[in-house]
Amino acid sequence: KELVLVLYDYQEKSPREVTVKKGDILTLLNSTNKDAWKVEVDDRQGFIPAAYLKKL
């Protein structure tokens, strides 16, 4: 599985998104959309803007 590093805090703005903190390391589920990547956070799945993430 692929991991990503969170570069900036992000507060979810819709039910399809998830809230993350800078420095979190998350499982990347889908990065086919260049604008928003799907990740898993504490058994929740949701989207975060790709600009907030860096592949490890």
Rank of each mutant, 00 (worst) to 15 (best):
P15V: 09
K55C: 10
K22Y: 04
D9S: 08
Y10Q: 01
D42H: 12
K22F: 05
T27I: 15
L26D: 00
S31V: 05
E12D: 06
P49Y: 06
K13H: 08
D43E: 11
E40I: 12
R16C: 15
P49M: 05
L29A: 03
L5N: 00
Y8Q: 14
V20E: 01
V41S: 09
K13R: 13
K13W: 07
L3G: 02
N33K: 08
P15E: 11
E17D: 06
D35E: 12
N30Y: 07
E2H: 12
K55H: 07
S31A: 12
I25P: 01
A51H: 13
V18T: 04
E12I: 14
L26E: 00
F47H: 06
D43L: 09
L3I: 07
T27E: 06
G46H: 11
A36N: 12
V41H: 09
G23V: 02
G46A: 12
A51M: 13
L28T: 01
N30L: 09
T27N: 08
E17G: 15
N33P: 05
V39C: 05
T19M: 05
V41Q: 07
E2L: 13
K34F: 10
D24W: 15
A36D: 08
K34M: 13
I25C: 06
A51V: 12
T19I: 05
A50P: 11
L53I: 04
V6H: 00
K38E: 15
Y52M: 08
G46P: 03
N30R: 07
A36F: 15
E12G: 15
W37H: 00
W37I: 01
W37C: 05
D24N: 08
L28E: 00
V39K: 01
G46C: 14
V41D: 05
V6A: 06
W37F: 03
Y10C: 04
T27D: 03
D35Q: 12
A51S: 13
E2R: 14
Y10A: 01
L53G: 03
R16V: 12
L5M: 10
V18K: 02
Y52C: 14
T19E: 03
F47W: 15
F47P: 01
K38N: 06
E40K: 11
K38C: 15
P49R: 05
G23R: 03
V6Q: 01
D24K: 06
L56T: 04
K1E: 08
K55S: 06
E40C: 14
L5G: 01
P15I: 09
A50C: 10
N33G: 10
S31G: 10
I25S: 00
N30W: 08
K21N: 07
D35S: 11
Q11N: 13
A36I: 15
E12L: 14
P15M: 09
V20F: 07
R44Q: 06
V4N: 00
E2P: 12
Q11E: 13
K21P: 00
D43T: 10
F47N: 04
V41W: 08
V18F: 15
E40N: 05
K54Q: 13
G23W: 05
A36W: 15
S14L: 08
Q45I: 14
I25G: 01
R16N: 14
A51Q: 13
K13Y: 06
T32L: 10
K55F: 08
V4I: 03
Y8R: 14
A36H: 14
P15G: 10
S14Q: 08
R44H: 07
E17P: 09
K55R: 13
L28A: 02
D24I: 06
R16A: 14
F47Q: 03
K54L: 13
D35F: 15
K21G: 03
K13V: 08
T19C: 06
D35I: 12
D43W: 07
N30A: 10
K22T: 05
L5S: 03
L26C: 13
N33E: 10
K34T: 11
T32S: 14
L56Q: 05
D42P: 05
K34A: 13
D43F: 10
I25K: 04
L28M: 03
D42N: 14
A51G: 12
K54R: 13
D43I: 06
K22L: 04
D24H: 06
L29Y: 04
L3F: 14
G23N: 05
D24E: 12
S14E: 09
V41T: 13
D9Y: 07
R44K: 11
L5P: 01
K38M: 15
L3R: 11
T32R: 11
K38D: 03
R16Y: 14
R44W: 15
R16F: 15
E40Y: 07
L56G: 01
G46S: 06
A51W: 14
P15K: 09
D24M: 15
D42R: 12
P49H: 05
P15T: 09
V20A: 13
L3A: 05
E40W: 10
I48M: 11
N30D: 15
E40F: 07
